[in-house]
Computed example of a mutant assay.
Amino acid sequence: MTATALIRLAGPLQSWGASAHFDRRDTTSRPTKSGVIGLIAAALGHDRTEPLGPLAELRYGVRADRPGTRIRDYHIVGAGPYPLRPRDLITDPKRAEAAQLAMEHETSPAFGYLTASSVPAWYGAPKEVAPDPHTGALISGNPTGRNGMITTRWYIADAAFVAAVQHKDSGLIDRITHALDHPKRLLWLGRKSCPPTGTIAAGTHAGTIEDTLTAAALLPNHTDPRPWAWIETPPHTPGGHKTNDQPITYHPQRRTHAPRWETRTRITPTARIEWDLIP
């Protein structure tokens, strides 16, 4: 029996990038299918290297009850010291030993510093950041320079969306709903700096995405009584358009997406499905 799971996506910040690079991370105006399927996979406890299996077959739709405001974050990386990462302790035995000694001698004036270096033992360098060869200070990119790297990061502020995933196997939809209520991994709204707030899962409902998004009541503080919705459709549907956010794999070394089709339409909710929101 065809069933649909409703998912509330709300928080101070969201970022749903269709493409991203180290120095520029954009966001679309609404949650992407790839981002929401990734959130579901995390809730189920899947590893990024696992095949998507039936999750790749989910049909997707999203309703923008409160579209939010697009904002830009002025972000600098590479200037100054950085907290030591756990993997630094695992991959660098000398640094791990120095950090351990520093912790054991916390009252010493030299606490936290490596021998013959001004860099604290508990500090490390993130990707693309290297120690200055003359002073030991951590600098970005070019090892002869000292300036931080300015990056551009876009977010959607104060937004609330209702996403929906549909499948002919109602058992799969039930498992998704349960996992969103009891996630096995941390969940975020596109990026790790964007945690969700309040209730996420809104139950399993018989019927299609169109039926369910129409039945679901508007979220609090909605901006339009007839919000826009983007609903997945078969290829070349009249009035539809192509978007490139169908996930193929989330494997870190070969993350891949494919095109899919969707239509944009206005929805007038009937409020047959009420929200049981936990702030």
Rank of each mutant, 00 (worst) to 15 (best):
A5L: 08
L6T: 06
I7T: 07
I7C: 09
L9T: 06
A10K: 09
G17E: 04
A18C: 10
A18N: 07
A18I: 13
S19L: 14
A20L: 13
H21E: 14
H21P: 03
F22D: 10
D23W: 03
R25S: 08
T27L: 10
T28F: 01
S29A: 15
P31M: 07
T32D: 00
K33C: 00
S34F: 00
I37P: 00
I37H: 00
I40S: 09
L52Y: 06
L52D: 04
A56H: 03
A56Y: 01
A56L: 02
E57D: 11
G61N: 12
R63A: 07
A64N: 06
D65A: 03
R66M: 08
D73T: 02
D73P: 02
Y74A: 09
G78Y: 08
Y82C: 05
P83K: 04
L84K: 04
P86D: 11
P86I: 10
L89C: 14
I90E: 11
D92G: 02
P93T: 14
A99N: 12
A99L: 10
A102Y: 06
M103Q: 14
T107L: 12
T107H: 13
F111V: 08
L114R: 15
A116Y: 13
S117R: 13
S117N: 13
G124A: 14
P126N: 09
P126S: 08
V129F: 12
P131R: 04
A137W: 06
I139K: 06
I139E: 03
G145T: 14
G145R: 14
G148S: 06
G148E: 06
Y155C: 02
I156G: 02
F161E: 04
A163V: 12
D169N: 15
G171E: 14
L172P: 12
D174E: 15
H178G: 02
D181Y: 10
D181I: 12
K184P: 04
L187E: 05
L187T: 03
W188M: 00
K192M: 01
C194T: 12
C194A: 07
C194P: 11
P196G: 10
I200T: 15
A201L: 09
G203M: 04
T204N: 11
T204W: 08
H205F: 10
G207V: 02
E210L: 15
D211R: 12
A217S: 08
L219A: 07
T223C: 15
R226I: 01
P227R: 08
W230G: 00
I231E: 05
T237R: 09
T237Y: 03
T237D: 06
G240Q: 04
H241P: 05
D245C: 01
P247E: 01
Y250G: 01
R254T: 06
T256S: 09
T256D: 01
H257Q: 02
E262S: 10
R272I: 00
R272Y: 00
W275G: 11
D276N: 15
D276Q: 13
L277I: 12
I278E: 07
P279S: 09
P279Y: 03
